[in-house]
Amino acid sequence: MLEVQHLTKTYGEKRAVDDISFSVSRGEILGFLGPNGAGKSTTMNIITGYLSSTSGTVLVDGFDILADPIKAKSKIGYLPEHPPLYLDMTVAEYLDFMFDLKRVRVPKKAHISEICELVRISDVYGRLIKNLSKGYRQRVGVAQALLGNPDLLILDEPTVGLDPKQIIEIRTLIKELGERHTVILSSHILPEVQAVCERVIVINRGRLVADDTPDNLSHAMSTDHKLTVRIDGPEEKVLALLRGLPSMLEVHPLGQRERDGVYEYTIETENNTDVRREMFRRLADRSWPILSLRSSEMSLEDIFLSLTSDNASAAPLLSGSSDTADAVPEEPDASTGGDN
């Protein structure tokens, strides 16, 4: 559906987007993750033909966005970071205009009212856009992107500035849309991506640092040699016992939990060792029950932080292209991605 190859965008010395390649197949919901100014918006603006890339190609359903812009653009519905709304028009006038602008070839009235039902803006249909709240404006923006049932929907931070209830509504809506459209969604809010997307691309400072499913990402980064365990037993003795376990590197007491005599500890063993069975046996011998045991698997939040705070450590995650990521020296962090 979408093929992005070696996309680069430079503003003078700054590289807002640096050699990004990925592809999206039909029906996928792809999350685009990165801190502010990472180049998310710039990438989306290039894909939709608002900006031109310095080098690299974008193919939308086989049509090059530069060589065949009209055909490529007709496949895309785009909600930019700031919904492109004419404030002095009513919702009805605006959607009517966008319908004509996109040269949609379906019955107009039925199509527009169907979309209004879908994004729930029918009740503000006759009102001026400048009088609408942020949440409604955002939804009008989504409605505009949906006109003509484009194959590819690109939504740039669709939930930004909405209240929690509206966020849930928009997320549900995106999931519904994902059944019929290919969706690319950018966000710097991780739970959102985790909740909605089947695949996540993380970019930082214009570079692609990860491309995987949310589960695989957290698995790849997770560390099953790091455990948090809660044990009912005298702290000092348990601590000594844990330290005596084979291939143990570090034990940290976390303090008392629940009630008297229950303490929590984090333990770290050498890589590729599983200490859980041995630990259970030894604790059981002393009848100090384990009340809870969890591996400190990283949440997407932790992954995100570790990927975006340090480029070098993130490189191995990128299967296939880790060598190139290592070779490039660190960029000055000045990508102006989202602000143009």
């Binding site: 033909g49 492109p84 602008l101 040269r103």
Partner: peptide, 10 residues
């Protein structure tokens, strides 16, 4: 920023 709607339209 309404130019984004115009330029990204076919």
């Amino acid at each position: 920023k309404t130019d984004q709607a115009l330029i990204t339209a076919p």
